[in-house]
Amino acid sequence: MRVTEKGQVTIPKEIRDRLNIGPGSEVDFVADDKGARLVVVSTGKIESAEDFEAWLKSRSGMFDTDGMTTDEFMEWLRGPRDDLGPR
């Protein structure tokens, strides 16, 4: 597979069919220690509970807060809250 000057690649039809990737689908590349993985973010449709469960399972473990608790992450994301007194 060759990368174009614009950084684009063509996903082979067999892979598109297997992963239900079509026009309007969103995909992402995720780097890991073995290289990069193509991850389907959205096929643009969820037709059944099984599709939703598969989608939900595919999101598992994709976000690393670097050991922060939920409260620490929310404060990092939003900034400190002005309406709360000191802890």
Rank of each mutant, 00 (worst) to 15 (best):
V3N: 01
V3F: 04
V3G: 01
V3I: 15
T4K: 01
E5K: 10
E5H: 09
K6M: 13
G7A: 04
G7D: 01
Q8P: 03
Q8H: 08
Q8V: 05
V9A: 11
V9H: 06
I11S: 13
P12T: 00
P12G: 02
P12Q: 03
K13W: 04
K13S: 06
K13V: 03
E14C: 03
I15H: 07
I15L: 15
R16M: 07
R18G: 00
R18D: 02
L19Y: 03
G22I: 06
P23R: 13
G24A: 11
S25Q: 08
S25I: 01
S25G: 07
V27H: 11
D28Y: 00
D28V: 01
F29D: 01
F29Y: 02
F29M: 04
V30K: 11
A31K: 14
D32K: 02
D32I: 01
D33M: 07
D33E: 14
K34W: 11
K34P: 04
K34D: 15
G35C: 09
G35T: 02
A36T: 08
R37Q: 14
L38D: 00
V39K: 08
V39R: 06
V40T: 13
V41R: 06
V41F: 10
V41W: 05
S42G: 11
S42E: 07
T43G: 15
T43C: 13
T43R: 15
G44W: 00
K45I: 04
K45W: 11
K45Y: 14
K45T: 12
I46S: 02
I46W: 05
E47L: 15
S48F: 03
S48V: 03
A49M: 13
A49K: 10
D51P: 04
F52M: 15
F52R: 13
F52K: 13
E53G: 10
A54G: 10
A54P: 05
W55V: 05
S58G: 10
S58K: 02
R59W: 08
S60R: 14
G61R: 13
G61F: 05
M62F: 06
M62E: 07
F63D: 06
D64T: 06
D64P: 09
T65Q: 12
D66G: 09
D66I: 02
G67I: 02
M68W: 05
M68F: 06
M68Y: 04
T69M: 15
T69W: 12
T70D: 07
D71S: 14
E72G: 11
M74C: 09
E75K: 14
E75Q: 12
W76E: 11
W76Q: 12
L77T: 01
R78I: 03
G79V: 13
G79M: 11
R81P: 08
R81S: 15
R81Y: 08
D82C: 05
D83P: 06
D83A: 11
L84I: 06
